[in-house]
Design a protein around this nucleic acid. Sequence first.
DNA 1: ACCGTATCTGAACATTTGTTCAGATAGAAG
DNA 2: CTTCTATCTGAACAAATGTTCAGATACGGT
Lengths: 202, 202
Amino acid sequence: MFRYGVGMARTQGSHSDITGPRIRKAALGLFARHGYAAVSMRQIAGEVGVQAGALYNYTPDKQSLLYRLMQDHMQDLLTAYDDLTRFDDPQDALRQFVGFHIRFHLQRPDEVFIAYMELRNLTPENFAEIETLRRRYEDSLEGILQLGHETGQFAVTDTKIATLAVIAMLNGVITWYRSGGRLSLDEVEQVYWGMVRKAVAA
Amino acid sequence: MFRYGVGMARTQGSHSDITGPRIRKAALGLFARHGYAAVSMRQIAGEVGVQAGALYNYTPDKQSLLYRLMQDHMQDLLTAYDDLTRFDDPQDALRQFVGFHIRFHLQRPDEVFIAYMELRNLTPENFAEIETLRRRYEDSLEGILQLGHETGQFAVTDTKIATLAVIAMLNGVITWYRSGGRLSLDEVEQVYWGMVRKAVAA
DNA sequence: ACCGTATCTGAACATTTGTTCAGATAGAAG
DNA sequence: CTTCTATCTGAACAAATGTTCAGATACGGT
């Protein structure tokens, strides 16, 4: 027997305020684990418990879904960093940056992974947007190094390279850190701060 | 008019010693630029000037092609490093490591990119193989830091973390360095060596 | 109770995917 | 020249891809 239209419609409890975030969360995890190109819209839909077509109520296409994730992440990062009350002393400001960076990024391993690994899957326009945001964040670190260089507290021959080197080093932490592991967050922060401090020290 | 069999066979000058490397080189470049999952066998074949079916004379499948590229790279790396005559003094050994790492990796940006970004596209067995090789390389750096720690020349509270931090910092160089840019290879090496030296200094 | 709309299904679409293989030609060896 | 084999073509395959859409159901307001 065929009951016409059974299950072919809006489902119980469905609401865009619920489904939207769930889709982005599922996409986030899958993109981080398998990579953007290796994940299909049907996989994402499956994780949400919905058909693939339903995703297009929440994103115009797959590419925009990726872009949205990156954009949200970068904006969260900038907002959180802007909310800090800064220190005037370069040394204090640098320590604050290191601590903030490590803690913020360790709380969002998937976002960080995607924002770094999937840049090449963005359209040129979307890529430019994300790069602008990233640049703004890196510039704030460079500003600290620059100031410390001028006051003679830091010995960095090239602040641009030093900035990238410090960030690369800090980002490395997310490749190995697992909460509940050998070291606590405080210990990790202290170890990295020790290395950064000495690396730029005069 | 249909001439039976025109162009449907072995092509002039075709030789496995030529085509094999060309396939790997094309795959290397495409994987690095667009990512393993986003590159099709037909794209690779097209770059070589051959039909997709011909690739299967040189690799059992796409996955093995990726694995081969990573394996070759890691083995080149280990062989090149093993060929160095080592220094006894930890400071000298560390400087040698920094210089070697930067120069070796800057000469092979595509290989490095792939070896780092496409690990998740390997089968578990292939992944384990590559990880073993990578571990062997990292262990040699940790050995240097460990020795320097024992002699009191280095102040690294955690040699494991220090190893990963140093490598992450050095790897960062390939994300921005372009030959013919503002800095020469020697200058880049000096800048990074300065930061690494100070970062682990007692 | 009714109506408008938000939300989802199920099916369909044109492409593209990795892979296989019979057959055809070129090169190497005798 | 003949024979054997290495190398490639061209076509084919099933499966998977991103995306669209008519229609069906649930929700929210009146």
